[in-house]
C-alpha cells in the first residue's frame, strides 16, 4: 500500500507522494480550508432562510426571541470564546514545544464545550417543557402565541442550534482524539497538522455561534 512513508530529519513521517513535511502540511491545510468552506455554505443555507423569513415576519420573530433567556446565550457565547482561545493556545504551545501546557489547554477547551452543551440541555428542556416546540408541534394552548406562526421561529431555533450542537459534539470528539495523541507525545513543533485542523473546525463552531447569539436571542 502507499503507506511506505519517508522519515524526515526530525523523525516525523510524511506520505510518499509529498516532497517534504512542509509540502504535506500545506496541502493538508488547504484541504481543511476547503472543508470549512462547505461548513460555511451548509450553515449559510440556514442563515439565508432565517434572514428571509425574519424580514417577512419581524414581529413574530421578536415574539419568539422574547421567549429565550438571553443570559444563557450570553453565558454560552463567553464560554465558546474562552474555548476558542484555549484551542488556539493549545496549538501555540505545540508550536513552541510545550506539549504539557498544550494538553492542558485542549482539556480546558473540552470542558468549555461540555459546559456549553449542559447549558444547551437546560435551555432545550425548558423550551420543550413550556411547549415551545418547532413548527406545527408548537403547543398553541399552552403558549398562547400572539402570532399564529410562532412555530416557524422555533423551527429555526431548534434547527440552527441543533445543527450547531451536533457540531459542538463532533468537535469535542475530535479534540479528545488529538488530546490523546498529544499526551502520547505524537505532536511537536515539527508536526501538529491534525491539531491545526481540529482547531480551525472548532473556531468555525465558535464563529457560527457568534452569529446565532444575537440573531436568535436578541434581535429575534
Amino acid at each position: 500500500m502507499s503507506t511506505n512513508n519517508h522519515a524526515s530529519t526530525s523523525g516525523h513521517h510524511f506520505a510518499h507522494h509529498f516532497r517534504d513535511a512542509n509540502h504535506e502540511f500545506e496541502s493538508a491545510k488547504q484541504g481543511i480550508w476547503l472543508f470549512m468552506v462547505t461548513e460555511i455554505l451548509m450553515f449559510g443555507g440556514l442563515f439565508v432562510a432565517y434572514t428571509i423569513f425574519h424580514n417577512i415576519y419581524p414581529e413574530m420573530f421578536a415574539e419568539g426571541a422574547k421567549q429565550l433567556d438571553w443570559r444563557m446565550g450570553f453565558f454560552n457565547t463567553l464560554v465558546l470564546i474562552m474555548s476558542s482561545l484555549t484551542m488556539a493556545l493549545g496549538i501555540y504551545y505545540l508550536q513552541v514545544g510545550q506539549s504539557k501546557k498544550a494538553v492542558r489547554s485542549l482539556a480546558i477547551t473540552l470542558v468549555c464545550g461540555a459546559i456549553f452543551m449542559v447549558v444547551k440541555y437546560f435551555e432545550y428542556t425548558a423550551k420543550i417543557h413550556h411547549g415551545f416546540l418547532p413548527g406545527r408541534f408548537l403547543d398553541v394552548h399552552h403558549v398562547n402565541p400572539e402570532h399564529a406562526n410562532l412555530g416557524l421561529y422555533f423551527g429555526f431555533y431548534f434547527c440552527m442550534t441543533g445543527l450547531h450542537g451536533i457540531h459542538v459534539l463532533l468537535g469535542m470528539g475530535l479534540i479528545t482524539w488529538v488530546m490523546i495523541r498529544a499526551m502520547k507525545g505524537e505532536f511537536g513543533p515539527d508536526y501538529y497538522t491534525p491539531v491545526e485542523g481540529v482547531g480551525i473546525f472548532w473556531h468555525i463552531v465558535d464563529l457560527i455561534w457568534i452569529f446565532l447569539f444575537p440573531l436568535l436571542y436578541l434581535v429575534g
Partner: peptide, 29 residues
C-alpha cells in the same frame, strides 16, 4: 467573526490561495 478568522484561525498569516478559498464560500452564500 473577522477577528476569529484572522487571528484564531490564522487566516491573516495564511496562504493567499487559502484566503481566496475561504472568501469564495461567503461570496456564493
Amino acid at each position: 467573526a473577522a477577528l476569529v478568522m484572522l487571528f484564531f484561525m490564522g487566516l491573516k498569516y495564511d496562504d493567499k490561495l487559502n484566503q481566496v478559498i475561504f472568501g469564495c464560500g461567503f461570496f456564493f452564500l
